[in-house]
Computed example of a mutant assay.
Amino acid sequence: MAAKGKSKNNIAAADEKKSVFSPTQIKNFVGEVKTEFLKIVWPDKKMTLGLTGVVVVLTVVISIYLGSVDLLLGKIVSSFLR
């Protein structure tokens, strides 16, 4: 009888080791994430501001282009519907 109880504990322990959501697996994952974050080389302030400026300028240019195309196509379609 004691062997049955012992084997159930071993099975439960093996299942806990395999479970991705066990506290030890979560702790290992968080530790690995922290280690990887320390390896990241973040851009400096000048580079960040420069790239942000490029994104803002491209967004404005593309939105003006798409707005003008939409306006032009809207006028063409409305002239055909008259």
Rank of each mutant, 00 (worst) to 15 (best):
Q25V: 02
G31V: 05
K45F: 09
K6C: 04
A14D: 11
L51M: 15
E36S: 13
A3I: 14
N28A: 14
K6S: 13
T48K: 09
Y65W: 14
K6T: 05
V54Y: 13
N9P: 01
E36K: 11
S19C: 12
K39W: 01
L71T: 04
K39Y: 01
G67M: 01
I26A: 15
T48C: 07
A14T: 07
D15W: 09
S79H: 03
K18S: 14
K45W: 05
V57Q: 03
N28L: 08
V77L: 09
A12M: 15
F37K: 06
S79Y: 04
F37Q: 13
K4G: 03
K34F: 06
V57F: 00
V41L: 06
W42S: 10
D44S: 07
L73N: 10
K45A: 09
T52F: 07
D44A: 04
E16R: 11
K18M: 12
Y65R: 02
S68L: 12
R82H: 05
K4C: 07
W42E: 14
I11V: 15
K75I: 13
K17H: 08
R82C: 01
D44W: 02
T48Y: 05
I64Q: 03
T35Q: 15
N9K: 15
D70I: 14
I76E: 03
A13R: 11
V54K: 07
F29N: 05
I76Q: 03
A13T: 10
L81E: 08
L72F: 12
V20E: 13
G67K: 01
T24C: 03
T59A: 09
F80C: 00
V60R: 01
A12W: 03
L73K: 09
P23I: 06
I26N: 03
S78F: 01
A14I: 04
S78Y: 02
V69S: 03
V33S: 02
S7L: 08
R82Q: 04
A14K: 07
S63R: 00
S78D: 08
F29D: 03
N10T: 10
S63C: 06
G5V: 01
V57H: 00
V69Q: 08
P43A: 02
G53T: 03
R82S: 06
K8W: 05
K46N: 11
L49H: 08
A14R: 07
L38Y: 07
K27S: 11
S22Y: 06
I64V: 15
A12C: 10
G5E: 08
G31P: 00
I76N: 02
G31E: 11
V30I: 13
F21S: 12
G74P: 00
V20F: 12
E32L: 06
I11S: 15
P23E: 13
S63T: 05
G74R: 02
S63K: 02
V30A: 07
K6L: 13
Q25I: 00
D70L: 15
V56Q: 06
E36D: 14
S63F: 05
K4R: 10
D70A: 15
